[in-house]
């Protein structure tokens, strides 16, 4: 059980946290891992804060509870940064990936942390998304950053699944743009 890797996404309705978590699950399944992806459901409203969870493991996952002490926190909307109690919510030596146009030192000042040791990463996923997709859907870029940081999923696995998921609805052009966003994020994510 200790081998289950847990992730909490902090986002707002409409930013694609849920889609990101599902894509992550798809990519992990492509690597023959066991996964869960599920949102914490409140009333669903565009713009309202929400949490989405992932579990990834080499063995079947049986837990059916919310994730309460993840290994990894993804903050897809930086305006939520002050509201998260990282000290209580994240495991010792946990990792945090923040979608931000600031550098790590600047965002650290805004974060509630304490004695625990964390690794913090910054990625301007919104800028990457605006550049390649022309709108603010940062989840694809976030996945690129996650892949780089953790090595849990590979870029080619994510690409394969983007292709399978988007091809009929959006076509090759949109997929190409998503892949560019993914690759830029992979290169740009910084500790």
């Amino acid at each position: 059980m200790s081998k289950v890797f847990e992730i909490t996404w902090y986002g707002r309705g409409g930013l694609g946290a849920k889609t990101g978590a599902i894509l992550l699950a798809d990519a992990a399944i492509a690597a023959d891992k066991y996964v869960q992806a599920f949102p914490e459901y409140g009333p669903e409203r565009q713009g309202a804060p929400l949490k989405v969870y992932n579990r990834i493991s080499d063995d079947p996952i049986r837990l059916h509870t919310a994730v309460t002490e993840p290994n990894f926190i993804i903050v897809i909307d930086p305006s939520l940064l002050e509201n998260i109690n990282f000290e209580d919510e994240l495991k010792e030596d946990g990792m945090i990936l923040v979608n931000t146009d600031k550098n790590v030192d600047e965002i650290k000042k805004r974060m509630k942390t304490g004695k625990k040791n964390f690794k913090i990463y910054a990625l301007d996923a919104t800028a990457i998304s605006m550049k390649h997709l022309g709108k603010n859907i940062p989840n694809i870029a976030i996945l690129g950053g996650f892949a780089k940081i953790t090595g849990l999923i590979r870029l080619d696995e994510i690409k394969k699944h983007l292709h399978a998921k988007l091809i009929t609805k959006y076509g090759e052009d949109i997929i190409k743009k998503n892949v560019l966003a993914l690759e830029s994020a992979y290169e740009e994510v910084k500790q």
Binding site: I22, V35, Q36, F38, P39, P60, H64
Partner: peptide
Amino acid sequence: QDGFITSHSVEN
């Protein structure tokens, strides 16, 4: 099956 807990949880 349990609403949301499995109905809205992606699994293998």
